[in-house]
């Protein structure tokens, strides 16, 4: 596998605040990655540094094997759809689309216009006059039609309704199958995208706390539901991520792989075992309450 991005001990500080703290990871070619984390976890900052729009305080970034800063051969292979993308105030949707063929070598104009139609975007309208949802759709259209070898979507669907988000997921998977490329999706709508993601990078307060295949992450935890009395004995010695009780029923999320023996033990005790959804797991992992005292790096 070719590494598209190599990030090594990346740190970014703004004054005394460290937004990205000693983060290292690699992104392989032809996969869909999820860059997840709560607001302010450092997702956008990392993406801005990968695309050389921000400068790292320390550490190293290589994109397509080279430093991205002022590197034409690297930058023209990237399409970064930013949540806060600025547009000149006179620009209409059509104006931006006119520019795209000269900016993205793989741009597919026909495809772009078919997407515009699907999103019912008013091509002649000024971008400043668009609603938040429409603005997000413009980004999605550019991101998909650019067919850039590295396409990065930062919160691509702010303000989009469920139908429009569905269109995005369907078109993305469809086009990804036809034109394989590397895609990074940053979002906090984890459940919706979890079926698309192959690999997850989870950030919490600037630190990378998970860097794993989605399937492996799902296998790292499970939830057991049952009466409080039985639960206590079952849980002794286990790493508890989260516990919720409703009357005498307790639901406990355990941060460790579910082996056969444990499963049998639970069945005997009459506990119900359910898989943890990616979203639940991530909420548990990034919910910084004192309860969470698990050493995540074990």
């Amino acid at each position: 596998m070719t590494n598209i991005i190599e990030v090594n001990q990346l740190t970014k500080s703004f004054g005394s605040a460290t937004t990205v703290n000693d983060v290292s990871f690699t992104i392989e070619e032809g996969k869909i990655y999820g860059l997840l984390g709560r607001n302010g976890a450092g997702k956008t900052t990392i993406m801005n540094m990968i695309t050389a729009q921000l400068f790292p305080t320390s550490g190293e970034i290589k994109v397509f094997g080279e430093a991205p800063y002022e590197n034409q051969s690297v930058l023209r292979q990237i399409c970064f759809i930013k949540e806060g993308q600025q547009y000149p105030h006179l620009f209409r949707i059509a104006d931006v689309l006119d520019l795209c063929p000269s900016l993205f070598p793989n741009w597919d104009n026909e495809y772009a216009y078919s997407l515009l139609e699907e999103y019912k975007l008013p091509v002649k309208r000024k971008i400043k006059k668009l609603s938040r949802g429409m603005l997000s759709s413009v980004g999605i259209v550019i991101g998909l039609a650019s067919r850039a070898p590295l396409t990065i979507f930062d919160e691509p669907y702010l303000g989009l309704d469920a139908v429009a988000r569905g269109i995005f997921y369907d078109r993305l998977l469809e086009d990804y199958a036809k034109h394989p490329r590397t895609i990074i999706l940053s979002t906090h709508l984890i459940d919706e995208v979890s079926r698309m993601l192959e690999h997850v990078l989870l950030l919490d307060q600037g630190k990378l706390i998970i860097n794993e295949e989605v399937d492996a992450i799902r296998g790292r935890a499970y939830t057991a539901i049952g009466s409080a009395k039985i639960m206590d004995s079952f849980m002794s010695g286990k790493q508890i991520l989260h516990q919720e009780s409703m009357g005498s029923i307790v639901s406990t999320t355990v941060f460790e792989p579910l082996d056969k023996q444990t499963r049998m033990e639970a069945e005997e005790l009459g506990l119900e075992i359910t898989p943890v959804s990616l979203q639940q797991l991530i909420i548990h992992l990034t919910n910084n309450t004192p309860k969470r005292k698990v050493d995540l790096n074990q």
Binding site: T51, Q53, E70, N71, Q72, L75, R76, I78, C79, F80, K82, Q85, Q86, Y87, P88, H89, F91, L99, C100, L103, F104, A148
Partner: peptide, 16 residues
């Protein structure tokens, strides 16, 4: 002010 960050957002080099 109007075009710099827009251009950078579309993968344009600062030099260009």
């Amino acid at each position: 002010n109007q075009t710099f960050s827009f251009s950078l957002g579309l993968s344009v080099r600062r030099k260009d």
